[in-house]
Simulated scan of single mutants.
Amino acid sequence: MTSYYEPIVYDVLPQDEGMLLKTVLQKRLGVSRKLMSRLKLTECGIHLNGKRVYISEKVKGGDRIELRMEKETSDDILPEFIPFDILFEDEHLLIVNKPAGLIVHPTHGHYTGTLANGVVHYWHEKGEQVRFRPVHRLDQDTSGVLCVAKNPYVHQHISEQMIQGTVDKYYIAMVHGHPSPSEGVIEGPIDRDPLEPHRRIVTPDGYPARTLYNMLERYVRGSMVQIKLESGRTHQIRVHMSSIGCPLIGDTFYGVDRLITAEFDLNQAIEVNDWMSRQALHASKLSFTHPITGERVTYIAPLPKDLAQLKQQLESEKEKEVE
């Protein structure tokens, strides 16, 4: 027997009277063409006042529209107990605090030991039938807030918010050196390095990328910086911060050894790198509009233990004044 997620419900407004059901679905509920085609093929997909109808039907004020999506599972992901922190969960969303070192989704050569394996196991234990749908990704060695949608409607809506730039993603990074000015915008197109395909570089022919930064604390041998992404290129923060001479502490791919010149002592920088076993980057805050409630929601992940310890070590040498 087919089972369904809780329906998405919309009560038709008086000003919607006379509209085609299809138009209401697109304009009021934001249903994409792809999802609408999927709902039309589902036996209980689109109902108007409790009855299945064609989307060419005209609606009246007070009519009730219900969208029902079939429950799915990630049968290709093996359930595996993997600890992770849950920041929030409802029937539509799962917000996790991803630990550093954990790959988000199985890839070639990494079929187990990922966050997806852990989440699928968690849902199995709860008896929930849900497919793993991350709305965005974090690098393996980046910790912090990550959003997982529990149905295609929610995934579509948050993805569209990301495209429209209405999702706010904030990071905390510990970097070498001191950004100058202490607050600013980095606009540098990013693309693959032709000599090292796995590496990204700032290049005039790259894809547009924009990063906002603000130095929160200044130390003798580094800075704590808050970063807001306004685009989502691969390795964007690491590439952009390195491009202004402030690579992330612990970053072996875009770190101090990649810089031809530096305003800080290279030997000291290498010593600070030894304090971290990964790049010092944490997704600290995520804000967006909840697709179902329409409320603006914000989720915050505290600094993990390794970054808190690094901060403490850097603070022990903290300069008295921030420029």
Rank of each mutant, 00 (worst) to 15 (best):
Ile8Leu: 15
Asp168Met: 08
Ile249Met: 11
Phe264Thr: 11
Gln15Met: 12
Cys147Ile: 15
Thr261Ser: 12
Thr73Cys: 01
His136Glu: 03
Thr252Val: 13
Arg233Glu: 09
Asp168Gln: 12
His110Gln: 13
Ser277Thr: 12
Arg199Ser: 03
Val24Gln: 07
Gly18Tyr: 03
Val53Asn: 05
Ile260Phe: 10
Leu303Ser: 02
Gly118Arg: 00
Glu160Trp: 09
Ile8Thr: 14
Leu281Arg: 03
Leu20Ile: 08
Ile77Ser: 00
Thr234Leu: 06
Val225Asp: 09
Arg258Tyr: 04
Tyr299Trp: 14
Glu80Lys: 02
Glu295Ile: 03
Ile244Asp: 01
Asn97His: 12
Thr42Gln: 14
Lys305Gln: 12
Leu13Asp: 13
Arg218Ala: 13
His47Gln: 15
Leu39His: 11
Ile163Leu: 12
Val272Gly: 02
Leu94Gly: 02
Glu319Trp: 06
Val9Ala: 07
Gly50Asn: 09
Leu29Met: 15
Thr2Val: 14
Tyr171Asn: 10
Phe84Leu: 03
Thr203Cys: 03
Ala280Glu: 06
Tyr10Trp: 14
Glu89Phe: 02
Lys51Glu: 14
His110Leu: 03
Ile86Glu: 02
Thr203Ala: 09
Ala262His: 12
Gln268Lys: 11
Lys318Leu: 03
Ala269Thr: 06
Val31Met: 10
Pro99Lys: 07
Thr2His: 11
Leu195Asn: 12
Val272Arg: 09
Leu212His: 14
Thr107Ile: 08
Met224Gly: 02
Leu146Thr: 02
Ile55Val: 15
Ile46Ala: 04
Leu39Cys: 11
Lys27Pro: 02
Arg33Ala: 08
Leu102Met: 15
Val167Gly: 08
Gln15Asp: 15
Asp257Thr: 14
Val9Met: 12
Asp141Val: 06
Glu263Lys: 13
Arg28Met: 06
Val9Thr: 15
Gly188Arg: 07
Glu72Asp: 07
Leu87Gln: 07
Val202Leu: 04
Asp139Pro: 02
Arg52Gln: 13
Val148Met: 03
His176Tyr: 07
Val12Ser: 10
Gly206Leu: 07
His176Gly: 09
Phe288Glu: 04
